[in-house]
């Protein structure tokens, strides 16, 4: 009766590619399906590719934030990949910065992020303030 967004399983991860202009019920259905699937499969990561989405409004933004928070409770990391620049600018202007949602440029990088969780960004802020480049290597 109602179309659903397919969820692919790739080993430990679940992959969702959103390619249609989503109406709200479809978004809610995805939220249900994903959480069910995570607990069924014991997936450790969820990758949502939104590179074909032309807009993300507050409803879809909320869904993305919810999925991310829910999967965290189910012990899975969520990465949103491929957000278009125009969409990102609009979301920021809308007032939605999705804190706590991890992002990556594309599926490949998102996958790498899930496999190899990166050092927390803020650690970079404190480290390495020396002005000179490290020149100790290649000398011995």
């Amino acid at each position: 009766m109602m179309d659903r967004i397919p969820i692919l399983r790739m080993g430990q991860f679940l992959l969702v590619t959103i390619q249609v202009d989503m109406h709200d019920r479809l978004a809610l259905a995805l939220q249900d399906d994903l959480t069910t699937k995570i607990s069924e499969t014991g997936a450790t990561g969820v990758l949502i590719d939104i590179s074909s989405l032309e807009i993300v409004d507050s409803f879809i933004g909320r869904m993305v934030a919810n999925i991310s928070a829910m999967s965290k409770i189910l012990d899975a990391q969520t990465v949103i990949v491929g957000m278009q620049p125009a969409v990102a600018i609009t979301l920021v202007e809308l007032g939605l910065s999705l804190p706590g949602v991890r992002t990556a440029l594309d599926v490949e990088r998102g996958m790498a992020l899930l496999q190899n969780p990166r050092v927390n960004m803020t650690s970079y802020a404190q480290a390495g303030d020396e002005e000179n480049f490290d020149d100790s290597d290649n000398q011995n």
Partner: peptide
């Protein structure tokens, strides 16, 4: 700040 936030949403720091 907006620019930084938008870039982060796309997956860049």
């Amino acid at each position: 700040l907006k620019t930084v936030t938008a870039a982060r949403l796309m997956g860049a720091d």
